[in-house]
Write a protein that binds this DNA or RNA. Structure first.
Length: 547
RNA sequence: GGCCCGUUGGUGAAGUGGUUGAACACACAUGCCUUUCACGCAUGCAUUCAUGGGUUCAAAUCCCGUACGGGUCACCA
């Protein structure tokens, strides 16, 4: 029995050939140097910050070169698949703004190289497997998991290399007649690739991050199609898909690097050109002095949902990730504050080869700087959008009078050196709640130095009756506070006070603090004059009257 | 255990044989400024590049060994 006949027996309904598919998916018409990348997550229900790092790299590579960035759903593991996973992926891509040029979502296919869901590409894989069988480079294997276990134990005992290769590959030397017979008898089987490699020889390949790496050749007859659902394994799907979709650069996690020799052999068995590889390192976490993989279960910050729910601006997340990728990015950003990150000249060799720690302090810093540079409209719009989803009560309050809210958000904002109060939108409420009567609940007055109620009332009483005037500008306003300080026995000038503290009851700082706390209940706020101006006379009086 | 990759400060790191007395940023500390807090400014924070040896006039940078860390060896991706 010929290989061709065996192939027909296994895939009787597959009529298209490799050549047919080559014609259906011709080379992409792109300008020279344009990169084609893909984000290819498996739909397990979570999007990890490490996944986003890859997506960023993919997106950047494509967009920076006028290429194509597409999304491929790697759902060949039906056991692990989660229904809502694809929604989560789309949500994250939408959040960071990495709009794929080609994708498939809710039955809609965008792009000419689909389907973009692997489970829908079964026929294609089968045609390619059929071809391999026809040329004698693949065969059915009937070994059960139990038999494989026994084999591995024997290999361990003999201290041999573990795996299905050489003399251990029992099904490799079956005749086609035997194979046909066992298939007809209904035995379960997988399809294995027939390796021609030699473990004692070396293969080299260039990884854009790590550089040249040398491995022993692959000589394992890996499984390329599973028996349970006839779906291909990752390795096979990678080769077929990235070839047909004409991916030029494959960005994936370091965990794949040791299977590259196998991928090399697969590509060459088909005579296909190989894409370039970028294997990026994992994001790590430091705990008790030990570095470990960041984990979905133990580290909330591992999941993209953490950043979305806290309301970090996407730009901040992207900036922090770019910094991890190429640390000279920060300098570039300083010099080019208004350029898009897509214009940055990225150097793959600069990507760290050992796992990086994702630093939340750094993220906060980047984000604070970023938000501090936004104008009040942008801040308001972002806050409005965020609270609409994550804090409905606050949303109602801030949208009641948008202009007022914007003014509040603008305190010490649109100026040379703006304040840096917010790292994310969920920080905002904590900083400005006292500006809204609906939220003002002065349970805890944060009195500082002056705590006796009599003295507080003396100060406030004098201020309200003799010095308060809504129409004062900032300088007069503060001059009056100084004047009052002197009158009450407090130093109007900080330097004088520091020189001879014993001459005074306290300083103008203490007086200001009393006013501040009386009006906001907080000891730490931005510019008091602005706050009072926005609150207005009536509300100031009513807040002071509570005391 | 085999095979790969890595190891520069609390963090990300720059650095590819001599202009490094190891950049820059974050964090931290102190001080100044200041009506509070921030902001801003200034200063400090690795006598040393995991470690032992070798090559060289010269090494964080090249070579070898050791230790440690990570990855991988599935009908998971």
């Amino acid at each position: 029995m010929s290989d061709k006949e065996l192939a027909d027996l296994i895939f009787p309904n597959i009529t298209k050939t490799i050549a047919d598919y080559e014609a259906i998916y011709p080379k992409r018409d792109l300008e020279a140097g344009a990169k084609v990348t893909r984000f290819a997550p498996s739909p397990t229900g979570f999007v990890h910050i490490g996944n986003l790092l890859q997506a960023l790299l993919d997106y950047y590579l494509a967009k920076n070169s006028n290429g194509i960035f597409y999304l491929r759903n790697e759902d060949t593991d039906t056991k692990r698949e989660v229904d809502t996973a694809v929604d989560k992926i789309m949500e994250v891509l939408d959040y960071v703004g990495f709009q794929p040029d080609e994708y498939e979502y809710r039955g809609k296919i965008v792009g000419n190289y689909g389907p973009y869901v692997q489970s829908e590409r079964k026929e294609i894989y089968h045609a390619f497997i059929k071809h391999l069988i026809e040329i004698g480079r693949a065969y059915p294997c009937f070994c059960t998991t139990e038999e494989l276990d026994v084999m591995r134990k024997k290999q361990e005992a003999k201290k041999s290399r573990i795996g299905y290769y050489g003399g251990w590959a029992k099904c490799r030397d079956l005749t086609n007649e035997e194979r046909a017979e066992r298939i007809k008898n209904g035995e379960e089987y997988v399809i294995r690739f027939k390796s021609l490699g030699n473990y004692n020889r070396k293969v080299q390949f260039d990884d854009l991050v790590t550089g040249t790496i040398e491995f022993p050749e692959n000589d394992l007859d890996h499984i390329i199609m599973k028996s349970s659902d006839f779906l291909p394994t990752y390795h096979f799907a990678h080769v077929v898909d990235d070839h047909l979709m004409h991916t030029t650069h494959v960005v994936r996690g370091q965990e794949w690097i040791s299977s590259v020799p196998f991928h090399i052999e697969l590509f060459s068995a088909f005579g296909f050109e190989q894409p370039k590889y970028i294997h990026n390192s994992l994001l790590l976490k430091q705990e008790d002095g030990v570095r470990r993989k960041i984990s979905k279960r133990k580290d909330p910050e591992a999941l993209m949902s953490y950043y979305i729910e806290k309301g970090y601006p996407k730009e901040a997340v992207i900036e922090s990730l770019m910094t991890i990728l190429n640390s000279n990015y920060e300098e570039w950003r300083d010099e080019n504050p208004d350029k898009s990150y897509l214009e940055f000249e990225f150097d793959p060799h600069k990507v760290g080869t050992s796992g990086a720690l994702y630093d939340l302090d750094k993220l906060d810093n980047i984000s604070k700087n970023l938000i501090s540079r936004m104008d009040k409209e942008t801040v308001y719009n972002n806050l409005e959008e965020y609270t609409k989803v994550y804090d409905n009560e606050f949303h109602k309050i801030i949208t009641k009078n948008p202009d007022y809210t914007k003014s509040v958000l603008n305190i010490e904002r649109e100026q040379e050196k703006p304040r840096k109060d917010f790292a994310c939108w969920s920080d905002v409420k904590e900083q400005i709640w006292y500006m809204f009567d609906e939220l003002y609940q002065p349970q805890n007055f944060e009195w500082m130095k002056i705590t006796e109620l009599d003295e507080i009332k003396r100060i406030l009483g004098k201020y309200m009756t003799e010095y308060f005037d809504e129409s004062d500008d900032k300088d007069t306003w503060f001059d009056k506070i100084k004047e009052m300080s002197t009158e009450l026995g407090y130093a109007a000038n900080m330097k004088d006070y520091k020189k001879n503290p014993e001459n005074y009851l306290g300083s103008v700082a203490d007086i200001s603090t009393v006013l501040r706390v009386a009006i906001t209940s907080k000891s730490k706020t931005p510019d008091l004059y602005e706050i009072m101006r926005l609150l207005g006379k009536d509300r100031i009086i009513s807040r002071i009257d509570i005391l």
